[in-house]
């Protein structure tokens, strides 16, 4: 086999590999979405949403699905402390406001106590909510919280959004939009367009974050919106940005 042929073979192989990965991601996403639709849900459950993101190559934080306090403790031991406990329910979309998120749990006892408290609170305030389960998630390091979203417009098709994350994003509306698909240049423009941009470049001790990694996620959200027409809206909030990369901690996908 000549060297030239070998190189061509290798390059061809890599292309086919990334292409087939894209197809597999789409197939996997289609299955997740199909299951949600056939069980009558208008949105994906959080673990399904995270799974879909993962399939498209977006880094997500490590998690295990649990159903009772004992499972929760085992999962936390396996993942390593501290952990976050989150409710998984089709009826509770904004978990934080509903008391469905408890963070910074440092040991098995705290996991058990928090689990019992959350069950108690939810049964009090969300008595009719169907609870599918709970997540034990790795508590990620502090970074800059950003939001990356996608919407589908009846006229212009899919669009992507970027902003500083957290619950005040709706209040401040410090966000930027572009129509999908987006190029890396457009993503960098989006990032620089928001008023809080200095928070991403080390303003007053905030970390300098990896803009390439953020751009990569925006591009991927754009292509997910293009590939999967069943999705009406989606967002990663927060996406935690670090100097060396990003990690998706929570996601919503609306069908």
């Amino acid at each position: 086999m000549s060297l030239e042929f070998l190189i061509e073979f290798l390059i061809g192989g890599i292309t086919v590999h990334s292409f087939s990965r894209q197809i597999m991601a789409k197939q996997e996403a289609k299955k997740i979405i199909g299951d949600a639709i056939s069980s009558g849900r208008k949105s994906l459950l959080e673990p399904d949403a995270l799974e879909l993101l993962k399939a498209f190559g977006i880094p997500v934080s490590e998690y295990i699905i649990v159903h009772d306090a004992a499972e929760a403790k085992d999962a936390a031991d396996k993942i390593g402390y501290p952990v976050v406990l989150k409710v998984v329910s089709r009826d509770i979309l904004h978990k934080t406001e509903a008391g469905g998120v408890m963070a910074g749990l440092k040991n098995a006892q705290e996991v058990e106590d928090s689990f019992n408290e959350m069950i108690f609170e939810l049964s009090d305030h969300y008595a009719t909510a169907k609870i599918e389960g709970f997540l034990i998630e790795r508590m990620v390091d502090k970074g800059v919280e950003v939001i990356v979203g996608g919407v589908r417009d009846a006229q212009f098709g899919p669009a992507v959004m970027f902003g500083i994350g957290g619950v005040i994003v709706e209040l401040l509306k410090d966000v930027s939009f572009r129509l999908a698909p987006v190029t890396k240049e457009e993503c960098l423009e989006m990032v620089k367009e928001i008023k809080a941009y200095p928070l991403l470049t080390g303003y007053r001790g905030s970390g300098i974050v990896n803009l390439d990694a953020i751009s990569d996620v925006i591009i991927k959200i754009g292509s997910i919106m293009e590939e999967l027409e069943e999705i009406k809206e989606m967002e990663i909030n927060p996406l935690i940005a670090y100097p060396d990369g990003v990690i998706a901690v929570d996601a919503r996908i609306m069908l």
């Binding site: 979309l93 939001i147 979203g149 212009f156 669009a159 959004m161 902003g163 129509l179 809206e233």
Partner: peptide, 22 residues
């Protein structure tokens, strides 16, 4: 009837602006 923050912020005008930029 948006349920996500993104959906709540993304009015028609924001999408128009994105279209103008494109």
């Amino acid at each position: 009837a948006a349920k996500s923050h993104t959906g709540a912020i993304a009015g028609r005008y924001e999408i128009y602006r994105a279209a103008f930029k494109k």
